[in-house]
Computed example of a mutant assay.
Amino acid sequence: MNCPYVRRAAEVPAYSPANHTGTSNQRVIGRETVGAQRVEVLLGTITRGHGALPHAHPDLEQASCLLAGAGIGEVAGRQRRLEAGDWSFNPMGVFHRFEVVSDEPVQVMVVYAPPYSENPNAALTATGADDPRCHARDDSVRDVPQHEAPAGLPHYHGVLARPVITRDTVGARHLDIRALSLDADGGAQAHAIPGTEQVLYLQQGAIHGEINGQPFRAGARDWVFVPEGGTLHFQAGGGPCRAILVRAHDG
């Protein structure tokens, strides 16, 4: 079943992003793929010893989830080892960098809100290794909690949602990201969220439902996009599911 709201990485070309080395990105959710205006989601592949050079985004938030491999992330002068399943969050205007340390390439899901689209005016780059902005400590920047207690989610049933990137966890202004665990009969009743775009990334299992009255099916490693104010309902495909729910709004 073809549906313009269901996207796969194989459907989009790869490109080499600015301010990175050894990196290949695929923009799965963006203006040119689904007409997104509030959110952009990339799948990045990065080889050992490479990654993101020190830079900052003055007008957008960035969240990243490692899907495979391991690396060292630095945000606001603080370093942290990240492995598969870990999240990081880069607030507006905060310098950050990332380097792969695993032999296997890193695969990473990157979320921007508002969309980045490789706009050179949306990034500040370091002037060199001694640029004080790269190492400036900012104690207001919080690490993403890894073990927040899951809870229910309005409009959903048979689902536990663990807060990851939210206003409460890291002070996010535009992003609300939760890790979902769905029972075999879990799903969501028809609902719409004004002023918000949504993305579901299926990590395990399958779902089927409708977006704005258009039927869709999605399986593991598929992205499902819900346009601003769009009506979504879905049901698990007969087995347990794991998914990441991204919501982007004005803040």
Rank of each mutant, 00 (worst) to 15 (best):
V144P: 03
G152C: 07
V12E: 05
D139K: 08
R217Q: 14
D222M: 11
Y201M: 12
A188Q: 11
M92T: 13
S181R: 12
G69M: 04
D168W: 01
T23D: 03
E74L: 09
F98V: 01
H157Y: 14
A151W: 03
V224D: 00
N90W: 04
E197D: 05
P163R: 04
L180F: 11
F225C: 07
L232V: 07
C241S: 10
C3L: 05
V106F: 00
E40G: 02
P132S: 10
G49C: 07
L42K: 00
E74T: 15
H96V: 03
E32G: 02
Y201D: 00
L66G: 00
E83K: 12
T169W: 07
R173G: 11
G22R: 04
D176V: 01
E148D: 12
S64C: 14
R78K: 14
A123H: 02
W87Q: 00
A18C: 09
L202A: 06
H191G: 06
S24W: 09
G152W: 05
Q198S: 13
D143G: 08
D176P: 02
G219F: 01
G239D: 13
P120Y: 06
Q198P: 01
M1Q: 09
T33L: 12
V106H: 02
G85K: 04
A149R: 13
G171I: 10
L180Y: 02
G238T: 05
H57L: 10
A206R: 14
V159P: 02
V28D: 06
D131M: 05
P54K: 06
L245I: 06
R78A: 12
A14I: 04
T127R: 15
H191E: 05
G85S: 09
V111I: 14
A179K: 09
H233D: 13
A126Q: 08
H155N: 12
H157K: 08
R221W: 10
A151Q: 09
V34Y: 03
D143M: 12
E61I: 00
A10L: 08
D183H: 09
D250L: 09
V159A: 03
R142I: 13
F89V: 08
L43M: 09
P54C: 11
Q26T: 11
W87V: 00
G152V: 09
I244K: 00
G44E: 01
A123T: 15
D185L: 11
L180H: 02
